[in-house]
Write a protein that binds this DNA or RNA. Structure first.
Length: 153
DNA sequence: GCCAACGTTGGC
DNA sequence: GCCAACGTTGGC
């Protein structure tokens, strides 16, 4: 099992939005970056766990955990002309973009802020702390997972 | 709103 | 295949 960190802007889709979905499951659509798409295609498996991270808000940070319940399949918003994520080069016959389904596991009782993560000696190297890291999904090591789980308790 | 980082595009 | 221009992300 692998661990990940998924970023979302809470004004767009927050952990509370996830908790209100039927069965608390949502498809993770809108990825339009090849590195992230390939990660979903090749590495993100059913049963993997992820930190749900709120970005572009104050304060940014980890707000809970979710689980992958469906592996990569075509992102149907890519050929929906109404969608903000419409891509004319992607079609149902030849889909260019992928998504996975995630299910809420738990919302943390408090937010673990980026500030806190940056200052923790064991989390300093987490990809999310690095300047210019703009990937919406990044891998998390088991050691990092454990530390954050302890902080959230 | 600013700006750094960096991916993508397109002319050559 | 290079690289400048441009767009997007996301912290601050």
């Amino acid at each position: 099992m692998h661990y990940w960190l998924f970023k979302s802007e809470p004004t767009c889709f927050s952990i509370d939005d996830l908790s209100r979905q039927p069965k608390q499951i949502m498809h993770w659509d809108g990825v339009r970056n090849y590195q992230v798409r390939n990660m979903m295609r090749d590495e993100i498996k059913k049963g993997d766990h992820l930190f749900f991270y709120h970005s572009s808000c104050l304060p940014p940070g980890i707000v809970g955990i979710a689980e992958v319940v469906k592996e990569a399949y075509p992102d149907f918003t890519s050929w929906d002309i109404q969608s903000d994520h419409f891509d004319p080069k992607s079609t149902p016959e030849n889909p260019r973009w992928l998504m996975v389904d995630i299910k809420l596991v738990k919302k943390f009782s408090r937010l673990i802020s980026l500030e806190e993560i940056k200052h923790h000696s064991k989390l300093k190297n987490m990809q999310v702390t690095r300047k210019g890291n703009r990937l919406s999904i990044t891998p998390v090591t088991p050691a990092e997972w454990k530390v954050i789980m302890e902080m959230s308790a």
